[in-house]
Design a protein around this nucleic acid. Structure first.
Length: 500
RNA sequence: GGGUCGGUAGCUCAGCCGGUAGAGCAGCGGACUUUUAAUCCGUUUGUCGCGGGUUCGACCCCCGCCCGACCCA
């Protein structure tokens, strides 16, 4: 654990010691960390605006730039030097020479280190090999770097260090920068899509007196003034539906959920979901809407509706498959018959024979779902909606009118992973109250993930919830898909880690 | 929780059958006015993840632990 009352222990090696001495000299000779440099130009814009110009163009019409960045490469050749500076959008080379800046400035520059922030003013030119560069008339050290950067060519490769010290990963690894830039683009696209469809973006509580909206173990915390236990939210669902009761007929929220579970390449204890609710819509409409949303997001983020994931092409352009649980099993495992899959005793025997975990108390629907998860889920590589989930595992979803044991619910699977979950919302307050009661019975029987009875939510439903459809989309998993990332840690800037 | 692999200089890595730790980059000094991971010459740097054990002697073999990656439950 980090002890914030103690200074960071000095782990100086020779390089750091030398850099500290350089910093001490800077302090003696003036302001060591000046903040009066005016950055006027960016690497990416400079390249875009002037990259195509010839040597002669740049000589005929000189372009002066004022640019700053972190020094990533340095090549000193006696009376002249080149350095590569990196800013938020790219890199730009500067040329520093005795006969332009004067010998004193160049001599000082030679002692600046990789990692230092440098501000440069000068005129653009092309080198012999045609690289756009800045012939610096002045260079300033803006911020001293005391610690050496990872090796300039290989960068940072240690996975653990990439996650623990993400800033180093971002400095040295363009792929890492690309992933998080794409993540931002994805979220922005979704937000625009939703507001473009007249949804209202809202923020609901992160701290819940009663955890609800999903089957998961919550984190607990304590409010001192109220002296009460609070739970970090596992889902915003029940609050968003209260808003639909309140008349916000189209709402969405993009925010964090917290679940007290283990860590894996697919699970981080805090993760981002987009949930949305629309009145007068059912789950079939939601599937169409979700398909369109994902298609447009893929196109905006990657430029294509066909995305490469782990060597496979995932086609988001084709209509997504829609299968019931039994149909999906049958499609990928024709060796199981409909009769077997509808035989509770046969399923239970199969689990025992295959040493698979299942809940003895589950009915046929629950066992079918477990069987699907065991045998078929990971085979759903191309986008597939699984529909008609059993009511016993869907306590917030509306029952099918023709088959009360199943609900109007779907989950979307891509690359074998659950990406979205949606349903026609249960708006019958008396049915909802009974379902909560059953959850409470399950909890008392030892199911830690079972839901609580939320009396205020029932009260809200009793005022009347219009027929409504709602859906949640896992943003982290979507970013994984669209950036070809194999671990959720690669798409979360600061993933949860054990303490060092 | 189980299995596999990994942790050696600031970084990337090598280190044979057990004989007292190396390279490249970075750093420092020198040469070099269009370099491109600049080049050339010289040179500094280690809790070999941690703790035990075996041994005359352990980075190396054995046991335990910590951290991570991947796979499985």
């Amino acid at each position: 654990m980090t002890d914030t009352t103690q200074p960071i222990p000095q782990d100086d090696n020779q390089i750091i010691t030398e850099r500290r001495a350089k910093l001490a000299q800077l302090r003696e000779s003036g302001v060591a960390f000046p903040n009066d440099f005016e950055r006027r130009d960016y690497a990416a814009r400079i390249h875009a605006a002037h990259g195509e110009k010839t040597k002669e163009d740049l000589e005929a019409a000189p372009v002066e730039v004022q640019f700053a960045g972190r020094m990533m490469l340095k090549r000193v050749m006696g009376k002249a030097s080149f350095a590569t500076l990196q800013d938020m959008g790219g890199r730009l080379q500067i040329y520093v020479a005795n006969d332009i800046t004067g010998e004193a400035t160049h001599e000082a520059f030679k002692h600046w280190d990789l990692g230092d922030f440098i501000g440069a003013t000068g005129v653009l030119f092309k080198t012999k090999t045609g690289e756009l560069s800045v012939r610096a008339t002045s260079v300033r050290l803006l911020s001293k770097s005391l610690r050496p950067l990872p090796e300039k060519f290989h960068g940072l490769s240690d996975q653990e260090q990439k996650y623990r010290q993400r800033y180093l990963d971002l400095i040295t690894n363009e792929d890492a920068r690309r992933v998080f830039a794409t993540r931002s683009k994805i979220v922005q696209t979704i937000r625009n899509f939703m507001t473009g469809h007249d949804f209202l973006e809202v923020e609901t509580p992160m701290m819940h007196p009663i955890p609800g909206g999903a089957a998961a173990k919550p984190f607990t915390t304590h409010h001192n003034a109220l002296d009460m236990e609070l739970f970090l939210r596992i889902a915003p669902e029940l609050y968003l539906k209260r808003l639909v009761v309140g008349g916000f007929e189209k709402v969405f929220e993009i925010n964090r959920n917290f679940r007290n579970e283990g860590l894996s390449t697919r699970h981080n204890p805090e993760f981002t979901m987009m949930e949305f609710y629309e009145a007068y819509r059912d789950y079939r409409y939601l599937m169409d809407f979700t398909e369109t949303l994902l298609r447009e997001t893929a196109r905006a983020a990657t430029g294509s509706e066909q995305v490469n994931y782990n060597g496979q092409i995932i086609d988001l352009g084709q209509p997504f498959d829609r299968l019931t649980i039994v149909d999906a099993v049958r499609k990928y495992h024709p060796e199981f018959s409909v009769e077997q899959l509808n035989d509770r005793a046969w399923l239970a025997a199969w689990f025992k024979a295959n040493k698979a975990k299942f809940r003895e108390s589950d009915g046929l629907g629950g066992l079918q779902l477990t069987f699907f998860e065991e045998t078929t889920e990971t085979l759903l590589i191309q986008p597939t909606f699984i529909i008609d989930y059993p009511a016993e595992v869907s306590p917030l979803a509306r029952r099918s009118d023709s088959q009360p044991d199943i609900t109007e619910r779907f989950e979307l699977f891509i690359t074998g992973r659950e990406l979205a979950n949606g349903f026609s919302e249960l708006n019958d307050p008396e049915d909802q109250a009974e379902r909560f009661m059953e959850q409470v019975r399950n909890k008392e029987a030892g199911d830690e993930e079972a839901m609580h009875y939320d009396a205020d939510y029932i009260r809200a439903l009793e005022y009347g919830l219009p027929p409504t459809g709602g859906c949640g989309i896992g943003i982290d998993r979507l970013v994984m898909l669209l950036t070809d990332s194999q671990s959720i840690r690669d798409v979360i800037l600061f993933p949860q880690m054990r303490p060092e």
